[in-house]
Amino acid sequence: MMEIVDPMNTIAQSSRVRLARNYADVPFPTRMSRQDSEKIIERTANALEKERYTLKRMADLGKNARGVLVEEHLISPELAAKDGAAVLLNEEKTVSIMVGEEDHLRVQAMLPGLQLGGAMELADRADRQIERAERFAFDPDWGYLTACPTNTGTGMRASVMLHLAGLAMLSQTGQVIHAVSQLGLTVRGLYGEGSEASGNLYQLSNQITLGRTEEEILRLLSDTAQQVIGRERAAREMLLQQGRAQLEDKLMRSFGVFTHARLMTTKEFMTRLSHARLAADLGFVKLSPQQLSQLMVKVQPATLERDAGRPLSQMERDELRAGIIRKTLA
């Protein structure tokens, strides 16, 4: 696939591909019996026996452990809520196979930066491996059959997470979202309310799954992501030209609060993290993108509680969060 592989791209935070698959001889999850859900877990685990996957059943995990998996983007909140569901994780945690979500299988691969082709390869390999032992619901006309017709065909949903701080500062994200939606792609704000994205993180993904090949979809997505990244770079350039000192002042003041505050809510964290990311990208502070991405996972509520070893009040979480930021970025 023609893609500029750019794992170090800091505007593209991560690339994800997920494939929806169902066993041909078992009803879809809404109509599965308890035995059915157990059966599909066992069959999937058996099909991947020779690979290094770890099986985690939701029934064996407490609320907190499930929450941590959600925060690590390894499972969806929907899967976490299902006692009869499970997830298979590879050693590197780049591939997670959710069993018993909306479809029998959601084979998901995630890589840092802009690497849709790489993510597809990982997901495809796992898919082919299961397919060697099993028959998936497939129709020559309609492709892979899924519980929801919005996924029928390739069953593939691919996405790129973009950090659009510059466009947001120029109030231009609306325009970009509008332009992108004309192409059969969707842009959503991450954790955000409405069009306003928390932490200026936007997820760009394909909408159509039928009538186009996986490669066509990925190419469109990758090309569009690169164009949006170009716009974001131009926005940053413009901000620097219009007033480098003001921009640097704004970001560094925010960074000062970020690294010295004693209480930090999730909402404030996301805003200041975006400022820190932009400051790092523009060379105002020396921080690695990995450092910031890891920080983002470490300060999420379930992960904080796991590390503390007990349930925490919101105030306690805000205090711990501020402490972790200071420790990580000092």
Partner: peptide
């Protein structure tokens, strides 16, 4: 009905992507 539904969602009703290896 299904064909119409798929067409209205995707604008197409014919799969051209990946096929299971056995097919």
């Amino acid at each position: 009905n299904m064909k119409k539904t798929l067409k209205s969602i995707h604008g197409h009703a014919h799969h051209v992507g990946k096929v299971p290896a056995y097919l």
